[in-house]
Simulated assay, not measured.
Amino acid sequence: MSSQVRGGTRWKRFAVVMVPSVIATAAVGVGLAQGALAASFSVSGQEFKVSAAELEGYDFVQYGSVATEPGADPKASGKAHAVAVSGFSKAYITNMCQSVVTPNLPFGLGTVTMRLEAGGKGHKRVYAKDLYLDVSELDGDAKFSHIDIGVAAGSLKTSKPGSIGIQPGTQADPNGFSQRAEEAVLTGVKQKAWATTAGTFNLSGLKLRLSKGTEAECY
């Protein structure tokens, strides 16, 4: 799995009363610097599940956007999905789990679940820098420090060193609804996501397993 880049927002008036959707998904071997990513991307057409005992994130931002699947015509976009994009300048994650189900595989394999775990007992927490996530669902408990709700997306980034705003290279509406906070702590997180990007992603105690059926999903 490699880092991907967020597509442009086509619904300029898209606005969501967004709940914090803030848990890292597993992108192994990501090492791209912020701003060095291409200006468009398409998602696979499969959502994946992610869970974590806790996420501690800093310089949290969130705004509405759209992720698109590849179209039948290479020059055209496919199906679009409304997403809440959440970003952090840095995040620390405990007991992270990601799972994705692939159905109807050939050669009699049927449905197979890939499950990835990191940051568990006896290992350092997962660390991510310049993290952005495209999320459609989130459940969990959240605590915010110095939160601003209803900020124009174009004004998210401040003069504070290391703060982040709309991901570079995207076309999110600068006048659209957004929110930000100095710190966010989420516990008991369960979410569904379409994509994630990060400048750095360190996965301590990484475990990757494949199994038949859907029993191995994170939740």
Rank of each mutant, 00 (worst) to 15 (best):
F60Q: 03
T9R: 09
F48D: 00
L55Q: 11
E217A: 07
I93T: 09
L210N: 12
F201G: 12
Q171N: 09
T113Q: 03
R209M: 15
H123R: 12
F201S: 15
G71I: 10
P174S: 00
V66L: 13
G154M: 07
A128G: 14
V5Y: 13
K75T: 13
A15F: 12
F88Q: 01
P103L: 12
E56L: 14
D173K: 01
G205K: 05
E47I: 15
A153F: 02
L206V: 03
G29R: 05
G108F: 06
L206M: 00
S99V: 08
Q191S: 15
Q34I: 15
A82N: 15
F144H: 04
F41C: 13
E137H: 09
T197W: 11
S40C: 09
S99D: 02
A198S: 12
M114G: 14
V16W: 14
S89H: 09
K121M: 10
S65V: 07
S145F: 10
I164E: 05
V50A: 08
D139T: 10
A198N: 08
A53W: 14
G176L: 12
V100I: 15
V189W: 02
G87A: 01
S65L: 03
E69F: 07
V19L: 11
I149K: 06
V101L: 02
Q179L: 12
I93Q: 00
S44P: 09
L133W: 08
Y92W: 08
V185R: 03
V151L: 10
E47W: 10
S21Q: 01
G165Y: 01
F41E: 13
G205D: 06
V5L: 13
Y63W: 02
G29D: 10
